[in-house]
């Protein structure tokens, strides 16, 4: 239904569960994809799986000089950059009273500041093209909070406010900026939870199950598509009813 033929997309965190699936789905819709992440091996594997129209662009998002260079590298590799998906994220969970400055800062750096820098870095080309799609991956905890995740929730809430502000500024140039807020999705990040934590989470999800990465990717595909041109500044919650916002 959604056709991205001829479009180019940069996806950060493409070595992870959700990011990899976003890359597959955008690629499946016809887009050329730039796969970014810190670990080269899974990126190479994904690129090999996708075949043509896939470029590997390793980048450590805690290295701000590398972050600044990434949009340019993506444009050099793909010729343009129409769609940016800021998906990469890290967690450094700890009780608030025990959270170190370093745990706080590293999560803010990667999840919020790198997202800011990448948004800024892609705008020039999108403004000239009078077309662009930015999809920032937030989280349900950015809206609800979560014990042990003061840093992560702050960053993810920050992403939503930042996306809205940018959406205002560039709407007249054909650029949309939206967020997707996943609930609990089956990935390596949620595999770290123990069974007690998992069953407690299940009790809060009306759908009675964790989400699948493909269900996040479908939301991103919609927001990246030409058909979503009138949708901007919104947050699409994909959480099985866990938080109805």
């Amino acid at each position: 239904m959604f056709d991205l033929t001829g479009k180019t997309a940069l996806i950060t965190g493409a070595s992870g569960g959700i990011g990899g699936e976003i890359a597959r789905v955008l690629h499946g819709a016809g887009a050329t994809v730039g796969l970014s992440g810190t670990r080269t091996e899974p990126l190479e594997a994904l690129a090999a799986e996708l075949g043509e129209r896939a470029h590997v662009l390793p980048c450590n998002l805690s290295d701000f000089a590398a972050v600044d260079a990434l949009p340019k590298q993506a444009i050099e590799a793909m010729g343009s950059l129409d769609i940016l998906v800021n998906n990469a994220g890290i967690t450094r969970d700890n009780l608030f009273m025990r959270m170190s400055d370093d745990e706080w800062q590293s999560v803010i750096d990667v999840n919020l500041t790198a997202t800011f820098k990448l948004c800024k870095g892609v705008l020039r080309g999108m403004m000239k093209a009078r077309w662009g799609r930015i999809v920032n991956i937030s989280s349900v905890v950015g809206a609800t909070g979560n014990p042990g995740q003061g840093n992560y929730a702050a960053a993810k809430a920050g992403v939503i406010g930042m996306s809205k502000s940018l959406a205002y500024e560039v709407a007249s140039r054909g650029i949309t900026v939206n967020a997707v807020a996943p609930g609990f999705i089956t990935t390596a990040m949620t595999d770290k939870l123990n069974d007690d934590q998992k069953s407690a989470i299940m009790g809060q999800i009306p759908a009675g199950r964790m989400g699948d990465p493909a269900e996040i990717a479908a939301a991103v595909l919609y927001l990246a598509a030409p058909e979503a041109g009138y949708v901007t500044g919104t947050t699409l919650h994909v959480n099985g009813g866990m938080a109805m916002l």
Partner: peptide, 9 residues
């Protein structure tokens, strides 16, 4: 204000 940014570009 965005026009002025674009002009500079």
């Amino acid at each position: 204000s965005l026009d002025t940014v674009e002009l500079v570009m």
